[in-house]
Design a binder for these strands. Structure first.
Lengths: 242, 242, 242, 242
DNA sequence: CATGAATGAGAGTTCATTCAT
DNA sequence: AATGAATGAACTCTCATTCAT
């Protein structure tokens, strides 16, 4: 009995591992060649299994793609939520900066995949569940933004979806721009200005009237934010050393 | 001789007309079905010609797609330039509004096609000329922005490419959002707020200081740059320790 | 114009010839290997064309099979009607002999194909049009039989479908038997006795009373029907007791 | 030791039971989907065992089919012999009627399977053992017929194989006809006429010259046969009640 | 001995491209 | 120059069979 339980446990673990291997291989090939360009044989070969095996995990190429998408966006959402959970600062702009930094990097690293997602929207109508994935993902921003309004950090009349479009839209486009001018490690260097720019934009455009903090000079605000960030970095370093 | 000249003139005109017909048909089918989903036979049928005929104009399906893309982006660029040429107002923000309105509408109307363009980047490496098309297209914004700076309407320290990413990125993302929530004619109604929002954003964020921010204090700027350098040093240290 | 007409005539003729070639090849392969056992590639090779070409004539393997069946049974029906039209004798039994001779030979020659037809009935529901083909074919016998009754050569109380089953059933089974015992040219030698046997059977069993049976005695008929009713009652009783 | 013997006995019984279960499942699936249409997985599932297990009983799908056929025809032969053994009447025509009734019913009930048998002849050359099965089965008729000749009930010059072809051929074809026109319970109702017709045919065509029984009127002969059958039924009922 | 996950050869079908007309 | 019938390589998916557990 015990041995049965163990063996079936092993069995299940093995199957799940194989499923992960398939998804990983599929993702790689789909990203490289697109949906139509991807060959099931190549995916199988990369996963180190037979062609037919894939079909005992997924009924068709389309379903495999769907699973890959699912996994990808779920992971992204989880990561974004993780970033929000672990960031130390509590003020809106500090948290926004963390989210922007994470998103920009993510979008650059997974550029191929994100392109693939949108490409599918039109070509393959049955694989257009991306809409829901996306909704879940951007909900992270939505929650942050609403909380910012609640806390009085953002103008009460700011429109959520407009802010959201500006946030994600600008970052994605920037990612594309950066990607186009990549030569070596310029990526890392170029990301920070974009992030800061985004935060500054939100501060100047959606930020609550600055009359609250008497005589607040924008420049000083910027300095303050930089100090905040430096402080965060310090904390992180201290943690690692501790 | 004269008749020959005329007939060859007619000949040439006929060829060009047929080429336009092919491109039009190809564009329609590519948009509806994507690159891989499009069938040459269907394109030929729609163009009212034989399948083989296409191949005396374009060497392959990929080249046909390329020509379609070329035509599309050239048209877009010409249109955008036309808008800039015909708009009456001379101030930056007025002209920006016109460009934003045109671009948002364009991006909504041609959403499928724009998605298709980016999709190709990955699928079909040989058809990735989109980079140049894009560069030409966004140059319209660039010229407008630089002129705005020259005229003192925009802050002198505003960075062109950041502004550009925000402009096009936000509008494209907005277009996607709008498209996702389309029911009937909501499109038209929802576009204006986005346009105005974009202009307001540029005014508040990139607009020249309107007295309040009374010229960045040199000492503050100096402090800021010192902080930046400190931050960078900090990063380097963290890296060595990590 | 004339040349056009001629060339299109030639074109059409060529296509029709190719269609015949395909059908012929398909028939041969289907007969040899059955529906599932037949390979499209083999059919194509036998027809001397490419695989894809078949699909511009028939949408699928199933439709090709259907066309083969159609052609086969239509041909059979036409031939049978031809035999009936060309046979000199006018009396029923003489004509029956001709039909029996033709059918037996046909069934022997095309045994494989007839088996194939019936095999399809169950396996492939969509290809079960055989019912109609068959109906057309056996109508030749039906007409002959009814005419025989009209002319008083056959008993008026003979039941058409019973006679038909006996005629075709016996001949088909005989064909199978003969086929099983074939060694050399025994086929030809063994067919005649079967044909004569069939005619004799019809003469003795369905032939009009030749004086011997001098009109069924009314009293006997009455007795018979009484017995039938008694038997039925008996069955009902047995059922209740069982 | 004893327990060993018992357990091995049980073992053997278990194996035989499992073999029967497999054959039953295989037969059901083969009949429903044909040889090529049947899936080993489905057969296994229906038998309540694993796919691989089948292969420890039968080396291949073809051999499984062969075993199914074997079992089917053996059963048929045994049943037919049983009918001949249990029928009370001793005269040829009475016994022929019993055999005809049994065969017609059998052929209707197992139509799919019989079609399948013949279909295999062509598709799968290695599975053409049906010839021998058939020979055994029709031997029942052969013995009956020869005995009828010995007893002087049938003409001495009647040819066995001709009679056999007519008997089985007509009945099979009738079965097909009946099957084609089935709506509800018409089957049962339509079988009897066919049976009687067959007996009448044998009487009129192969029966010994009726001069033996002076003044034998066909109608009277028919009455006599009906009385015989009634008597048989009576006996059967008496048996059940006794 | 029983299992069912894994296999991979091979099936029908599609479609960009060619070329005789 | 224009055609569209012909091509056949390449695709996704199936399933009888195997074999580690």
């Amino acid at each position: 009995m015990a041995s049965n339980a163990i063996s079936s446990e092993t069995q299940r673990a093995k199957l799940e591992r194989k499923e992960r291997v398939i998804l990983e291989a599929a993702r790689a090939i789909f990203v490289d060649h697109g949906f139509d360009g991807a060959r099931m044989q190549v995916i199988a070969r990369r996963a180190g299994i037979g062609e037919g095996t894939i079909y005992s995990y997924y009924d068709s190429k389309a379903e495999l793609m769907l699973a890959v998408l699912q996994q990808f966006w779920d992971g992204l959402t989880r990561e974004a939520e993780g970033v929000m959970a672990s960031v130390q600062v509590t003020d809106f702009f500090g948290r926004l900066e963390a989210l922007a930094r994470y998103h920009l990097n993510t979008v650059i690293v997974n550029a191929d995949f994100i392109n693939l997602t949108f490409a599918l929207r039109r070509n393959n109508s049955e694989v257009s569940v991306s809409r829901d994935h996306l909704r879940h993902y951007v909900a992270v921003f939505d929650r942050l933004f609403l909380r910012g309004q609640d806390r009085g950090e953002l103008r009460a009349d700011a429109v959520l979806w407009q802010a959201r479009d500006i946030f994600y839209g600008s970052l994605e486009y920037s990612a594309r721009s950066i990607e186009m001018t990549i030569d070596a490690d310029r990526t890392a260097r170029e990301q920070e200005p974009v992030v800061h720019q985004m935060v500054a934009l939100f501060r100047s455009h959606f930020g609550a009237a600055q009359g609250t903090v008497a005589g607040d000079d924008p420049s000083v605000v910027q300095l303050s934010s930089k100090l905040d960030r430096l402080s965060e970095k310090f904390d992180a370093l201290a943690k690692r050393l501790g």
